[in-house]
Design a protein around this nucleic acid. Structure first.
Length: 733
DNA sequence: AATCCAACGATTTTT
DNA sequence: TCGTTGGATT
C-alpha cells in the first residue's frame, strides 16, 4: 500500500518518480519484488528507497543492508546515495554478497573453524589445491581435470550444499564417483590452510547463522531493511543467506529482471525470482515497465523476441518515445564482410556526428572480436576491448601478493609454494617435496616445516642454507609488520627477496611492463590501511581499472554489456552454431536456449537509438570453414520492427530467410547430417568410427564412443552421459 | 632448468 | 587455426 499522497507536497527526492517507481520506493514494509525491465530506472529506485528509509527515520544507515553483485554496482550505489544523504552512507552495510559475507565471517571466524585472518583463495589457488588432492588420491587428472572437479564443487556450494548434504547428486559421478569425497577433503584442506574460497564465504555464514542463534539474533537486530540488486543473478546459497537474515524483519526488497538472467551457467537461479511470491508469502510485486532508454522499434523488437520464452513473469515494456529507427538486419557472406560492414557503418555514423564512445559491438564469444579489431586497425578506428586480463591476475602481481600473503598468514601453503623458489634460490622439487612430506606428517604448514627442517640434517647443506635464508627472511619481514609502513615493507620484501632483481635480469620483452606493474602495485598499497586490508581488496575487488574516457568504440561480450547502454549497438554473429551457442543448448536444453534468448534481449536493450543484427553465411570456427544459417532469434524479431538490408544473391533479396532458421535448426554450421546419412545408407556401416574416438553430436555435444553396432553407437557424452545414437548423427571431433 | 614438440581443446565470468 | 599445456628431451 502506498502511503504517500499522490498529489502535492512530495519531497523533492520523490518528485520525479513515475507511479510504479514511487510505489516501489515507498512500500517499505514487508517483502517486495521490484520487477525492473531494462532501462526502467531500477538503480534510481534502489537509491531513492535507501534515502527514503533514512529521511523518514525508518532506519539509520547502519540498519540498512544493500547487496549488489559486483563491486562496480556497489560503488555506484554508494556514491549516488552519498550525493543525496552525505556521509551517513558510510555506516550502511553496502557491498557485494561476498564482501558483506566476508565482513561477517571475519567477526565470527572461530564458529566456522577459521582464524579471523583467513585467506580468501582465488580460482587459481582453488584449482591448484584440487590438483594436489587428485595427485594425492591417485586420480588421473587427465581423465578428471582439476577444473572439472572444481566446477562441480563450486556448483554444489552455489546451491548451499556442504559435503554432508550433497547426497546422490548426478555430478558426484565424476572422478570415479569420488567427487563428494574430494569435496570433503578439499574443505578439510582449506581449514588447515586457514583459507576459504568464494563459495565458503556464504556457506560459512549460513552455518554460523544456523548453529549460533545468538550471532544470528545480532544481525536480525541490526538489519531492519534489506535491499538486493540483480536478484535474478542470485544463486541458492545467496538466496538462503538473504532469507535467513530477513526472516525476522521481513523487510526484504529485491530488484531484478527475470528477462536479464544470463548467468545460470555459473550458478544463478532464475527460479529465485520466479518463485519470489511463494518464498515470501504476502510479497508485493511492483513492475517497472516504462523504459527511458530505447526507441519504440528497438524496444518492440526486444519484447517480441523475449516473448518466445516460457519461463518468465512477464512484463510489457513501453516507451513514451515513438518511432525511431527499426532494427537493421544485415546478412553478409562471411566474418570478414561482417567486420567490413560494421566498420563502414561506424565510419558513416562518425561522419554523421556520432561519438565512437557511444557505439558498441556486442559479441557472443570472445574470439569474435578479432576480425573487428583487425578491420579497425586497418581503418584506424579507435577501439577498446572490454574484459581482458586483469591487473591482479598477472604473474608478477600474483607472485608479489603471494609474498604478502605468507607474511600476513603463514599457514598459506599455496602462496608459500608459489614463491618459495621464485626467484630461483636453490630450493628445487626434491626439497619442496621433502617439506611437503614433513608438513603432512606433522600436520603443520609448509613454512613451519621449513623452520623445523633447518634444525636437522635431512637436507644437504646447500639446500638447507637456502631454506634457512627463506625462513629467516619471512621471520624478519613479519617482525617489521608492526613497525614499518606497509607500502615500504612491500617494497623491502620485493627487493630483499630478489624478486625485483629477477625481472631486472630478465631478457624477455615483457620485463619492463612487469617492473612497471610491480611499482604500480606498491603505489596502490598506499591507499589501504594495512597489508590485510589490501589483500582483502585484492581477493574481493578484483575489478579492472576504469576505462579511460577516450572516444573509442567498445568491443565486448554480451555478458559484459549487461547494465550498460549505447546510442548504437552492433550485434554480429547471429547464426545457428554460434548464437544461440550449441554448448548452452547441449548442457541445458530448453532452459539453455531461453538463457541465450535473454542474452539476445540484453543485447538489443543496450541500444538507445540504433541496433544492427548481422549474420554470415560462412564462418571459420576453430580454423574450419562452416556454412551457417541465420539464428532462430533473427526469425523471432517482429518483422515490422526490422529493416532487412540484404545484398543481392546471398539468401535472395527478400526477407524470406527469416522463416528458414527454425526449419534448419540443428544443422547450422556443420556438414549436413542428411548428406552423411545418405553416405551411411550406401556404404553401410561406417568404418571411420571406433570405440574410444571423440565425436560430436548436434544435440548431446562432445563424447567418446563406447561401443559400435550396426548403424548405432553407444557414446559416453561429456554432459549428457551414456546414450545410444545413430551413427549418421555424429561426426568426428 | 630450459626448451621443444605433440596433443588438445575451443562460451559466457564475478567474487 | 591457434594458443595453451604437459611430457620428453637436452
Amino acid at each position: 500500500m502506498n502511503t504517500m499522497p499522490e498529489s502535492a507536497a512530495l519531497p523533492a527526492y520523490l518528485a520525479n518518480l513515475n507511479p510504479p517507481q514511487l510505489d516501489a520506493v515507498t512500500s517499505t514494509e514487508g517483502p517486495l519484488l521490484v520487477l525492473a525491465g531494462a532501462g526502467t530506472g531500477k538503480t534510481r529506485v534502489l537509491i531513492t528507497r535507501v534515502c527514503h528509509l533514512m529521511v523518514t527515520r525508518k532506519a539509520f544507515a547502519g540498519q540498512i543492508l544493500a547487496v549488489t553483485f559486483t563491486n562496480k554496482a556497489a560503488a555506484e550505489m554508494r556514491s549516488r546515495i552519498a550525493a543525496i544523504v552525505g556521509d551517513s552512507v558510510e555506516a550502511m552495510w553496502l557491498g557485494t554478497f561476498h564482501a558483506l559475507a566476508a565482513r561477517i565471517l571475519r567477526r565470527h571466524a572461530e564458529h566456522a573453524g577459521l582464524k579471523p585472518n583467513f585467506t580468501i583463495l582465488d580460482q587459481d589457488d582453488q584449482i591448484r589445491l584440487i590438483k594436489q588432492l587428485l595427485a594425492a588420491e591417485n586420480i588421473d587428472d587427465k581423465k578428471w581435470p582439476a577444473r572439472v572437479v572444481h566446477h562441480v564443487i563450486e556448483r554444489w556450494k552455489d546451491r548451499g550444499l556442504t559435503p554432508d548434504k550433497v547426497g546422490t547428486d548426478p555430478s558426484g559421478e565424476i572422478a570415479g564417483g569420488r567427487a563428494v569425497e574430494l569435496y570433503a577433503m578439499y574443505q578439510e584442506r582449506l581449514k588447515t590452510l586457514n583459507a576459504c574460497d568464494f563459495g565458503d564465504l556464504l556457506l560459512h555464514n549460513l552455518t554460523i547463522f544456523q548453529t549460533r542463534p545468538d550471532v544470528l539474533a545480532e544481525y536480525h537486530k541490526r538489519f531492519r531493511y534489506m535491499l538486493v540488486d540483480e536478484y535474478q543473478d542470485t544463486n541458492v546459497a545467496q538466496y538462503m543467506w538473504l532469507r535467513i537474515l530477513a526472516q525476522q524483519s521481513r523487510n526484504l526488497c529485491c530488484v531484478g529482471d527475470d528477462d536479464q538472467s544470463i548467468y545460470g551457467w555459473r550458478g544463478a537461479e532464475v527460479g529465485n525470482i520466479l518463485r519470489f511470491e511463494k518464498d515470501f508469502p504476502g510479497a508485493k510485486i511492483v513492475r517497472l515497465e516504462q523504459n527511458y532508454r530505447s526507441s519504440e522499434h528497438i524496444l518492440a523488437a526486444a519484447s517480441g523476441l523475449i516473448a518466445h520464452n516460457r519461463a518468465r513473469l512477464g512484463k510489457t515494456l513501453w516507451t513514451a518515445e515513438a518511432g525511431g529507427e527499426r532494427v537493421t538486419v544485415r546478412p553478409v557472406w562471411d566474418g570478414e564482410q561482417e567486420a567490413n560492414f560494421v566498420a563502414d557503418e561506424i565510419e558513416n555514423l562518425q561522419r554523421a556526428g556520432e561519438k565512437l564512445g557511444d557505439i558498441a559491438i556486442l559479441v557472443r564469444a570472445g574470439f569474435q572480436t578479432r576480425e573487428f579489431e583487425e578491420r579497425f586497425i586497418t581503418l584506424g578506428i579507435p577501439y577498446r576491448v572490454i574484459g581482458g586480463p586483469r591487473f591482479y591476475e598477472r604473474e608478477e602481481i600474483r607472485d608479489a601478493i603471494a609474498y604478502f600473503r605468507v607474511i600476513v598468514q603463514p599457514d598459506d601453503d599455496l602462496a608459500f609454494e608459489r614463491i618459495v623458489n621464485k626467484p630461483r634460490r636453490g630450493i628445487g622439487d626434491a626439497t619442496v617435496q621433502l617439506l611437503q612430506r614433513l608438513a603432512r606428517a606433522r600436520g603443520m604448514p609448509l613454512l613451519a616445516a621449513a623452520e623445523t627442517i633447518v634444525t636437522t640434517d635431512e637436507l644437504k647443506p646447500a639446500a638447507r642454507n637456502a631454506v634457512r635464508r627463506v625462513v629467516e627472511d619471512f621471520a624478519r619481514w613479519r617482525g617489521q609488520v608492526e613497525r614499518a609502513h606497509h607500502a615500504e615493507l612491500a617494497a623491502t620484501v620485493l627487493d630483499e627477496s630478489g624478486y625485483t632483481r629477477m625481472w631486472q635480469m630478465d631478457k624477455s620483452p615483457e620485463k619492463d611492463g612487469k617492473l612497471e606493474n610491480l611499482k604500480e602495485l606498491v603505489a596502490a598499497l598506499e591507499e589501504y590501511d594495512d597489508l590485510p586490508a589490501f589483500l582483502e581488496h585484492v581477493s574481493l575487488v578484483m575489478e579492472n581499472a576504469e576505462a579511460a574516457p577516450a572516444d573509442m568504440t567498445s568491443l565486448m561480450t554480451l555478458h559484459a554489456a549487461k547494465g550498460l547502454e549505447f546510442g548504437t549497438v552492433f550485434l554480429p554473429g547471429w547464426e545457428e552454431g554460434l548464437f544461440p551457442h550449441p554448448r548452452a543448448l547441449d548442457d541445458k536444453g530448453e532452459d539453455g536456449l531461453e538463457e541465450e534468448r535473454r542474452l539476445a534481449h540484453v543485447g538489443l536493450t543496450r541500444a538507445r537509438r540504433r541496433a544492427y543484427v548481422t549474420f554470415a553465411a560462412n564462418r571459420r570456427i576453430h580454423g574450419m570453414w562452416q556454412s551457417s544459417v541465420p539464428s532462430r532469434f533473427v526469425a523471432e524479431l517482429p518483422p515490422d520492427r526490422v529493416d532487412v538490408k540484404s545484398e543481392p544473391g546471398l539468401w535472395g533479396d527478400g526477407p524470406q530467410f527469416a522463416h528458414e532458421p527454425a526449419r534448419s535448426f540443428g544443422y547450422g554450421n556443420r556438414r549436413s547430417p542428411l548428406i552423411e546419412g545418405r553416405a551411411t545408407e550406401i556404404g553401410g556401416r561406417r568404418s571411420d568410427l571406433s570405440p574410444g574416438m571423440r565425436v560430436f553430436h548436434q544435440k548431446f555435444g562432445y563424447g567418446r564412443v563406447v561401443a559400435t553396432e550396426s548403424g548405432k553407437l553407444e557414446v559416453e557424452f561429456e554432459h549428457s552421459g551414456l546414450k545410444h545414437v545413430m551413427e549418421s548423427f555424429v561426426e568426428k571431433a
